[in-house]
Design a protein around this nucleic acid. Structure first.
Lengths: 214, 214
DNA sequence: TTGTTAAATTAACATCGTTAAGTAAATTAT
DNA sequence: ATAATTTACTTAACGATGTTAATTTAACAA
């Protein structure tokens, strides 16, 4: 059942179809376990058709990543309206971890595997757009705590603080994703680990310990 | 030029030869990029010979991991003799990061990719041996800080503390390894990030801030 | 000498990402 | 209206990979 010249809309539609099929398979089986042929089969096309829309598997993966970065920013943006800046930061971190642990295969694809250097010009995400760029959101949230004068007085680089907060939460999530089944380590409950990491970051970075830390 | 019945020693020798060749290639190119045929070629055997010593590539990888876990423990054990418990913990974390960033492909293989659940019985590493088990070393170091009464009074689970310290350092190293080339993020210097993470962990976990934090 | 076993090799398989060649329908040109 | 071109797609095929099966060669045992 072959071809007509397609409108740009129809082309985008098929592109999206591929993207969605890939995402659904990636999230269940992980990027590496999913083949181009499987993705194609799921949408009733031949594998080679994918190459009419994406240069190679890597490009497809990165396009899926793009939509997932959008999804992450979308999932986190609710936290930006929380009143108290420290509570906001805590909720933001908690939301981040929830995303990571809910979609470990996506998280692995997004933050735990090396992509060839990403070109912001070629991305559908607008960098420094608070609706789309989760890293920008983090910088905002950290900067608001900074401007509120909450950090310890010798901490004056908001970017560095943001990256440290990120690294702390990433460390807990990444170890959970990669190593949770490693019986060598007597893992504490993941909730406890997240809780203590957040507590430690707050205590280690803030001037005064807030009394909200249940 | 083929076969004689071999002594157990000769068998072990060849096994080690395979292991070393695999390690050398893994450390340069990463596990995934290295093929069984390349490993075999490097030692002058055919690819199928490897299967006489290792069930499959995964088993070979895990055997290499084992020797690397030993190497990590060996690299870290010098820190165990440092006098002050807090300085000891800091040096230990610093040594860990140095290993991670010096051998990123090994680190990725060891801590950033999911292996099938490891069987301590089948490992050459003696669990809870302070010479061989780096996680046990960490628990010792953390526990010594704990016994010295240095942690905040509401922290009473040394395992949980150890896993939080680990996660913090792992977070910095793992983001560096996977994301350092991501131009989306304006990365601070890796040394600064390690420094601030250590400072934050110390401040967040200890009762009193030591004055050693240059 | 003849089997038997061990260590290795070569052939071969299925699967993967990917490219080349081919096919059929719609559009354009004559 | 028919021929040529373009578009969207498919099937074939390639080279590489992990792995298994079949085969060779050499040492030992009867």
């Amino acid at each position: 059942m072959p071809p007509k010249p397609k409108t740009e809309f129809e082309r985008q539609q098929l592109r999206t179809l591929i993207l969605d099929a890939a995402r659904e398979l990636f999230v269940v089986h992980g990027v590496e376990a999913v083949t181009m042929r499987e993705i194609a089969k799921r949408i009733g096309y031949s594998a080679t058709s994918i190459y009419l829309h994406f240069a190679d598997k890597e490009a497809l993966i990165r396009a899926v990543c793009d939509t997932d970065f959008l999804a992450l920013a979308d999932a986190l943006k609710n936290n930006l309206v929380i009143d108290d800046p420290v509570e906001r930061l805590l909720a933001f971190g908690r939301g981040y971890a929830q995303f990571a642990l809910s979609y470990p295969n996506h998280y692995r694809m997004m933050f735990m595997t090396e992509h060839p250097p990403c070109d912001p010009a070629n991305s559908c995400i607008q960098q420094n757009n608070a609706e789309q760029d989760a890293y920008f959101q983090l910088k905002i949230v950290v900067n608001q705590v900074f401007l509120a004068g909450k950090f310890k007085p010798d901490l004056n680089d908001a970017d560095l603080i943001a990256q440290t907060v990120w690294a702390g939460m990433h460390g807990v999530c990444a170890l959970q994703i990669s190593m949770a089944n490693d019986i060598w380590v007597n893992w504490a409950d993941i909730e406890q680990r997240l809780q203590l990491m957040q507590l430690t970051l707050i205590r280690g970075l803030l001037q005064d310990e807030p009394n909200i830390l249940k």
